[in-house]
Design a protein around this nucleic acid. Sequence first.
DNA 1: GTGAAATGTGATTCACAATTCACTTTATGC
DNA 2: GCATAAAGTGAATTGTGAATCACATTTCAC
Lengths: 217, 217
Amino acid sequence: MRATKTETSLRREQILEAALDLIGAEGVHHLSITAMAGRVGIVPSAIYRHFGGKDEVLDAVLDCIGKRLSENVRKARKESLSAPQRLRSLLMRHAYLLRENRAIPNVLFSDGLYAGHPARKKRVHDIVTGYLEEIERIFEEGVREGSIHPDISPGTGATLFLGALMPAAVLGNVVGIDIDVVAHAEKTWPILERSIVVDRPAAGSRIISRIDNGESP
Amino acid sequence: MRATKTETSLRREQILEAALDLIGAEGVHHLSITAMAGRVGIVPSAIYRHFGGKDEVLDAVLDCIGKRLSENVRKARKESLSAPQRLRSLLMRHAYLLRENRAIPNVLFSDGLYAGHPARKKRVHDIVTGYLEEIERIFEEGVREGSIHPDISPGTGATLFLGALMPAAVLGNVVGIDIDVVAHAEKTWPILERSIVVDRPAAGSRIISRIDNGESP
DNA sequence: GTGAAATGTGATTCACAATTCACTTTATGC
DNA sequence: GCATAAAGTGAATTGTGAATCACATTTCAC
């Protein structure tokens, strides 16, 4: 049965979505023109009516993911909360985003996408560093407003933040261990908060000093 | 020039190492019989004198990585330190291991290896869960001996621990952001420790109660 | 209605990687 | 030294997925 003719702008959406689904389910490695076409309900060669080739599809996938991530940060930054609360907000947004878009970790942390593809590798690099910088900015603001421990450098903080979500996202998706990212984020936040947030404006120094020796009788 | 005849037990080692190097540099996706052979200095078809095929090589790679990881845990567990100190020891060992074996994250967190390969996927799953369970055990011991916050479930703790290393390992390797895993681990530990270790036997409850509202002024 | 443009289709080509195989060379025990 | 088994080689085979192309169908403006 012949597929009904559909204009490119719509087909592109369908193909993109198919690609995201397939990547989410099977990883970048298993994404093939044939599989995308099958999911959309057209024949493989028809893909070339809407994309120049597989590379162009992958670029679109990357674009899409980059946009969703930065959109997420944008929303979190708009909220006029304290820095730690904005971090919490971003953590939860991130968790929901990852739950809905299982392709994201597969795309960003998989080699299949950019192996031997410097340009695309750079784009992934830019997306991730851009995201990290936004988190760093929140940390800096937190330190300035006195709500975040000054002994945490923004870079370390951002990496720490990423580490709070990554295991759940990566394990759940890539390795196939079933973890609810949102539930995990909710459990993790209080602990992360404990290591980031200044206890009381005055009491911070006591905590810092404890770390120097790490002993207690 | 013909390669010098070398007995299988040694060649297998060479091929395995070549595979690990290639995976570390380019990812699982780019590992080919031809590339391995080239690196060892033999012709592709010669690989089949020593391995049944590519799958057998990948299984060996997985075996090797699994062994190195569990060896690492074994060493850390042998040390008669407090639970937090054993965690620290494991974190640092882990960091060194990852620095020397850039293939590890690429293998464990990449789809190329086990996509459509249930048996191998299960092995990766077993390696990761086995590792997590060991970490959980250290957390349990810590809670029992009173050195680790009892409000951290072993599962959350283990995931938290993994999250302390993952960003550095994955970003450094997969995404191509240069992070020294060891330096990162050293910077991260004090912060992780702060959220895990009981401050003083008596003061813990104060910290816990603060988390309930999250306000200070 | 009609024709041009857009979209869909199936056959085909191409490149590349895994694997097999008949044959050659090397090492080693005797 | 020599027979033999182990290891190496290059050519040929096979499989797979991306990409192309000539042709068919649909849509839509006129």
